[in-house]
Design a protein around this nucleic acid. Structure first.
Lengths: 150, 150
DNA sequence: TCAATGTAGATGCAATTGCATATATATTGA
DNA sequence: TCAATATATATGCAATTGCATCTACATTGA
């Protein structure tokens, strides 16, 4: 009678596996980052979104959508990045409520430096454990969960 | 020349996908939990390990290994669980440095209540998005990442 | 047997997060 | 045009986390 609300064993294993794999891999990558004297991984995500964006700038709510950061967390993360000189806030003429977040040269440099640790870390903790085909298959299955367009 | 440290595109997509899928699914499940007036998901993990364990008890370092919680976080999480009457600390005779963490009846009841929200949440956010075969395949790939024995 | 070292767990403090709410516009419909 | 409502971002405060270190006991080797 609980059939329709019990997840299948496979779904449960997938969920547990998702949590564990993410936690372990994230911990391993963050350890690499710390060993390299680098700031938290989330800084990379924000900097990278900005670097990819036109004119190296985005509105906070756009960063929010791309990174899944909560609004209040992003607001304070921008404070920290700004304090480090990696981004700066600029006025947004068309709407006085808003602002631009612009990546600075120092921010671009930091992103590159971070990638220098990130890339081998991904290679080591993901690439080395799966074949090309498996990594692709994994990415495809995960994107189904996020509801992304493929 | 950077070939050996650049991750493949597939590995990178798998990593991004892993982060996103975990974050989104976790957020969705935690939202369900909050809607049901339940405590954080991590409480479930600890209670469940205790319920599964012989005599409903484990040493803190055992819980630590099973849940991937940091030692200092677990120590304080046990404080909170104890304050809520869900577990209690008992002396461990064979080593005066250690203690047992024992799940109480209230703790068992809470775990069951949590599962009442957790199960449909997993079914909805994982089970509904993948076929049985896909969920199994995903679980298998993820376990490769965690380095678990299959 | 005891000094050195290792292990289990707790804790002070600073940084980060989550929650609720504030502030300052912008938009919309009567 | 203005009150009501919605949107963009910030912030006070409490809870949680991370880091470093502490306490207490255990083990080991000279």
């Amino acid at each position: 009678m609980t059939k329709d609300i019990e997840p299948t064993a496979a779904a449960t294993r997938a969920w547990i596996g998702l949590m564990r794999a993410q936690q372990r891999t994230l911990a391993a990558i963050e350890k690499d980052f710390k060993a390299a004297g680098l700031p938290p991984l989330i800084w990379y995500d924000v900097l990278w979104e900005l670097v990819k964006a036109e004119d190296g700038r985005l509105r906070p709510f756009e960063i929010e959508a791309r990174t899944l950061l909560a609004q209040y967390n992003l607001s304070r993360l921008i404070d920290r990045l700004e304090k480090e000189g990696l981004v700066r806030r600029e006025v947004f003429d068309e709407d006085a409520r808003g602002c631009w977040v612009v990546v600075t040269e120092a921010g671009r440099a930091m992103r590159e430096r971070m990638w220098g640790a990130y890339a081998p870390s991904i290679a080591r903790h993901i690439g080395a454990k799966l074949s090309e085909a498996e990594a692709s298959e994994l990415a495809a299955l995960l994107s189904r969960l996020s509801g992304d367009a493929m």
